Each structure stands twice: as structure tokens, then as C-alpha cells.
Computed example of a mutant assay.
Amino acid sequence: MKVQSKKCLEHISVPDRVLCLHIAWNILFVGLASGSVVSYDLKTLKELDVFECHGPRGVSCLSTAQEGARRLLLVGSYDNTISVRDAKNGLLLRSLQGHTKTVLCMKVVNDLVFSGSSDTSVHAYNIHTGELVRIYKGHGHAVTSIVILGKVMVTACLDRLVRVYELQSHDRLQVYGGHSDMVMCMAVHRSVIYTGCYDGTVQAVKLNLMKNHRCWWQSCSMIFGVPEHLVLHLTEDHSNPNLQTVKCRWKDCNTFFSTQQAVKQELPKHMQSHVENDKLQN
């Protein structure tokens, strides 16, 4: 597609539904619902090969890597596994196992591939040995996108949150919210996190690990990167406007709201004041 004229320049016909695309070495790899991967020369658009990978389960995501001089194709599937293959002939070299549901996204960094799954976890595998090196937990739903930034990992999730993890310690450093629906895709450019939601909205927020806004509600340990997201978390996750009475459980606070009207009208303002006061103290 030519961007300026919006005219279709070329058209490629494939034998089944396209579920994912990946480009490397001037080759277009197309993952199909049949479980096959079709490769095309980007210059000529000539079909190069068809690899039968995970049939009858579909190919959910694709990535590439190097093993010495050998080019590797990584194929994620609805059968919960990732197959590591020779990118030239499709030969299966090893299978990465451990996820219990569909592998939805992958990111290759040096010798590791980080994979996000519907099982709510991110796994880190050694591409060359197949060893499962680390597991990152704490997501409330399927992980849809992964970005690696130096020593941290940013993940998007269907639970409407974006999380930031330290790669080595597995610790969750921050959370970003404010989304109106499930986060389906994500990109990070110049320290700005861009997220696309299921309802068609796009959000942009600055990633800043130096500013932390902790939820001090009893039994909650979430740390937000933006104070407004913490306010939303308090009003949506720690409050219910239908309750007749509520006691504030923010640290060192014993304020009691004794009527449903007070819960609806006064509690949200009360929560926001806690966030604003905590922000001033930090």
C-alpha cells in the first residue's frame, strides 16, 4: 500500500487466514491459521517456501534469530509451544515448552526469546538450548505485547494494564493504567508507551522509572508511574459505589463513610486527596 495515494501496489494471495507477519533478511514470513508459514521474497514477492509447522493449530506469532551462520525462525502457536526452525528449509531444531495456553507474542534479545501467553505469564527461553530460564508472573489476563528496553521489560495485558519488570530480578517496578478497554498492542518510542485498545482508542504515556506513586491501600502493593492512574485504580478497584458503608484502608487513615451517598460522592475525592498528599511528600 502506498501511503500518500492509498493505492494498493501489490497483492499476495495466501491459502488460508493470515494471523501474523514478520520481516527479516528481506523475506516476508506469513503465519497462517492452518499452522503453516509461507515465505516470500520482498523484492519480487515470489513465494519461496511453505513450512508445515503446527497444523492443525494456527501460527499466532513469529520472530527470527541467529545461531552462528544459521538463520532461525521462531514460530509461536495456539498449541502452546514455540518451534525453533531453520529459516531456510523449515527443519525443526527444538521446541520451547512450558506455556499452558496460546503463545501470543515474542521478543528476541540476544540468546533469549521472551514469550507472552494467554496463561498470564511471560517466559524467557534460551533459544539455542531450549532451556526455560525465567518466568514473569503477576498479570491478570493474557499478555499481548512485549517490549525490552535495556534492563527492563514492558508488557501489555488484556486486563487493561501495562507493567514494567526488571529483567534480572523479575520484580515488577511499575504499572500504567488509564485504559478504557483491553490492551491489544503496544510500542515504545523515545520513552513514550503507545498502547492500542480493543475499543479503538490509543493512549500515549511517558515512561519514567524515577517517579513512583504507590498504592498504600491495605494488602495492595501496586506502584504506578502516573498519579492519575493510581486515582483510577483506587476508585475502580478499591471502591464500590453500591456499598452502604466503607472504611478507608489507606495507611494511617480510619475515615469512615457511613452512607451510600457519601461512598459515591465523598470517597473518590477522599482517595484523590491521599494521592495528591503522597505526591507532595515524595
Rank of each mutant, 00 (worst) to 15 (best):
V18H: 02
D199G: 00
E228W: 06
A204N: 11
H22I: 04
V183H: 09
V231G: 01
D171F: 13
G116F: 00
K101Q: 04
A87H: 14
L74A: 04
C185V: 03
K46H: 06
I146E: 01
G150P: 05
L167M: 06
V183A: 11
H274L: 01
G150L: 12
T155G: 05
H270Q: 10
V133W: 01
I23T: 09
M271F: 15
H274A: 06
S95Y: 01
H179W: 00
L234N: 04
D237F: 07
S145M: 06
G35W: 13
P56S: 14
G150D: 11
V188H: 05
C157W: 07
N282Q: 15
V205L: 02
K151A: 07
L267T: 03
K107T: 06
M182I: 02
V109N: 10
V226D: 02
F51C: 14
W25C: 07
L48M: 15
T44W: 10
N212L: 03
V231I: 12
C197N: 11
S117N: 08
Q244G: 04
Q272A: 09
V50C: 09
T44M: 15
T81M: 14
G90V: 00
K6E: 09
L158G: 07
I27G: 03
R190E: 08
K251V: 04
R94F: 13
K43V: 08
S95R: 10
S121V: 12
Q272K: 06
H189F: 03
F51I: 09
G58D: 02
K2E: 09
A204P: 11
T81S: 14
L92W: 11
Q244N: 14
V154T: 02
R57V: 14
L91G: 12
K151D: 15
V50G: 01
G68W: 02
Q272M: 03
V275D: 00
G130E: 04
S169E: 12
Q244E: 15
P56L: 11
K211Y: 12
Y194V: 13
N110K: 14
N89C: 13
C157Q: 04
T120N: 15
S115L: 10
E52R: 05
H22V: 04
D181I: 01
